[in-house]
């Protein structure tokens, strides 16, 4: 039995005219809900298959072991949702940005949909900062806790030295210089909303989990880990900034 999809009149990539030169498109997509639990490596493998079933006319390297060119932006840590994740794709046949978006979305779930496809003007190496929204919930979160959080992460505060796991072993790092800005406010009963701009790029990256760990260790917040129903937090990455704080596209 053939699937309905298999019989659909989707244009085979081989029916599209070849381009004189391969073209690179940037695809902006979200990674939400259940998909926050999959690693960057899982994401890469998934996209290889999405591109095949969406019949995107990928350009392949010439060589003994041909492979397509797929370059991802800044990896999203496991447990963090993303609204504006990016991947650059190189195609060698005619396809419009709109067609590409439609064909991709037909092969994706709503937890990972493409919001935009365009021809990029800036390389991923221009990304220096990531924008994050943290939502923390615990009965113990009050205005006092918010004040304490603001103080902990304020620009002139004492260094927050934490142990960072790296490939070359554990390192002691002050995370404060990796925070460009941070604001905290109470958003309803026992819920705190934090907006943070954190280092995210080739020069260095700060996993937003460190903020939570710092609040746990230094302020005693969210310390009741035995009650995941009433004591939880979520992290969302909304976008990226260049070195001077401009939105990256």
């Amino acid at each position: 039995m053939l699937s309905e999809k298999g019989l659909m009149s989707r244009i085979s990539k081989f029916d599209r005219p070849l381009l004189d030169q391969p073209v690179t498109y940037r695809v902006v997509f979200c990674k939400r809900g259940n998909l926050q639990y999959f690693s960057h490596l899982d994401l890469q493998r998934t996209w290889q298959r999405v591109l095949v079933r969406a019949s995107i006319p990928m350009w392949y390297t010439q060589g003994f072991n041909p492979h397509s060119k797929i370059i991802f932006g800044i990896p999203l840590p496991v447990g963090v949702e993303g609204l504006g994740e990016m991947v650059d794709l190189r195609v060698d046949r005619e396809i419009s940005a709109e067609e590409m978006k439609q064909q991709l979305n037909a092969e994706l779930t709503e937890e990972m949909t493409v919001s935009e496809v365009y021809i990029p003007t800036a390389p991923f190496s221009d990304i220096v900062w990531g924008q994050y929204e943290l939502t923390l919930h615990s009965p113990a979160l009050t205005e006092e806790a918010v004040t304490a959080v603001r103080g902990l992460f304020s620009a002139g505060a004492p260094p927050i030295v934490m142990t960072k796991r790296t490939k070359s072993g554990d390192k002691q790092v002050d995370i404060l210089p990796m925070i460009r800005s941070l604001s905290a406010e109470l958003a309803g009963d026992g819920t705190m909303a934090i907006h943070a701009v954190l280092a995210a790029g080739n020069a260095g990256s700060l996993n937003p989990e460190y903020l939570v760990t710092a609040m746990r260790e230094r302020l005693g917040l969210l310390s009741d880990q035995s009650d995941p129903e009433n004591c939880w937090y979520t992290i969302l990455r909304t976008g990226f900034l260049t070195e001077d704080g401009q939105a990256f596209r």
Binding site: Y37, D42, P228, W232
Partner: peptide, 26 residues
């Protein structure tokens, strides 16, 4: 069924949370 926030706290506390996440295409 547990809510998404609780699920996050549980899944981020184990190895390979992708085993339990669900939400697969298909």
């Amino acid at each position: 069924m547990m809510n998404q926030n609780e699920k996050r706290m549980i899944l981020t506390s184990v190895q390979k949370p992708g085993r339990y996440a669900g939400g697969e295409y298909g």
